[in-house]
Nucleic acid binder design. Structure first.
Lengths: 143, 143
DNA sequence: GACCATTGCTATTTGCGATAGCCACGCGCT
DNA sequence: AGCGCGTGGCTATCGCAAATAGCAATGGTC
């Protein structure tokens, strides 16, 4: 008995969205694992690099990661030697990439660029230009 | 100082896909919570209803849920009185919906139907018909 | 009848997110 | 200047989904 069971959910948009996101995530997770980076690491490093003197809370706000969850994440990045904190006042610190962090970031960027290219390439070209606009419509972006 | 930090990842398709999926998931989770159902519950119940005498492993295979993770999930559904097991042989059992399970399923279907409608409605109509085909291209469907 | 894959399960771990609570600091208000 | 509210950074803990390892027993195949 092979698979007499059919996926009756396969035509539900929400379900298919979830499956697609999962497949994408698994792929990217695997690619980043080869340089010992998690997706959340990559996201935070890229946000730090792309903004000037961001604080932990600010990064958390853009990425929708709560302060409480930023703490251990940043601790890992710190321990890995990729970021460092530079006090802005007695309360908050700016996050900065170290030399090692910059190097790691370049490796990450290379992987991401290739990954996003591969991703879009999988979408038949007649649908490709509609992909991002459709997704934006579903993402409740906080401004 | 409001939010001087911009989301530099916002143009990456994979990232936006993930954000859209998250928004969708959060919405559906909330709607199903009102009838005390989790998304995974709903998925399993719908698969059981849509196939004849499926076993736990078969359902797990279509939904990509490992056997080990099916066990506690089914235990919950069983405890809730929504499913029951009918032995096929001494090794496997067919999963069946109870009366209560059928009733719950109807409530689930109502919510899902509405949800999927709302979801598609958010997508500007010029992109709408491209949505599912694009996602299918990303989902490595196991036949 | 023997062997091997499969079934259903327990137990444990990891990743990610959410909640609650803490202390200290800054900022705006009067 | 002083007060108080909101915020920043953090610890600790929980929930959920998924993954791994291992196990006993069965079914199917040769």
């Amino acid at each position: 008995m092979t698979t007499m069971v059919s996926d009756v959910l396969a035509e539900l948009p929400g379900y298919v969205l979830q499956r697609a996101a999962n497949a994408m995530l698994a792929d990217l997770t695997g690619r980043l694992a080869e340089i010992d980076v998690r997706i959340s690491d990559a996201a935070v490093l890229m946000q730090i690099a792309g903004n000037s003197d961001p604080t932990s809370s600010e990064i958390g706000r853009v990425l929708t990661i709560q302060r409480a969850n930023m703490a251990p994440l940043l601790a890992r990045l710190d321990k890995a030697g990729w970021i460092r904190r530079s006090p802005l006042d007695r309360k908050s610190s700016a996050l900065l990439l170290t030399e090692e962090g910059q190097a790691k970031l370049e490796a990450i960027r290379a992987i991401i660029t290739r990954f996003e290219g591969d991703l879009m390439a999988r979408i038949p070209q007649e649908h490709r230009s509609h992909f991002m606009p459709a997704l934006y419509a579903l993402w409740d972006r906080p401004i």
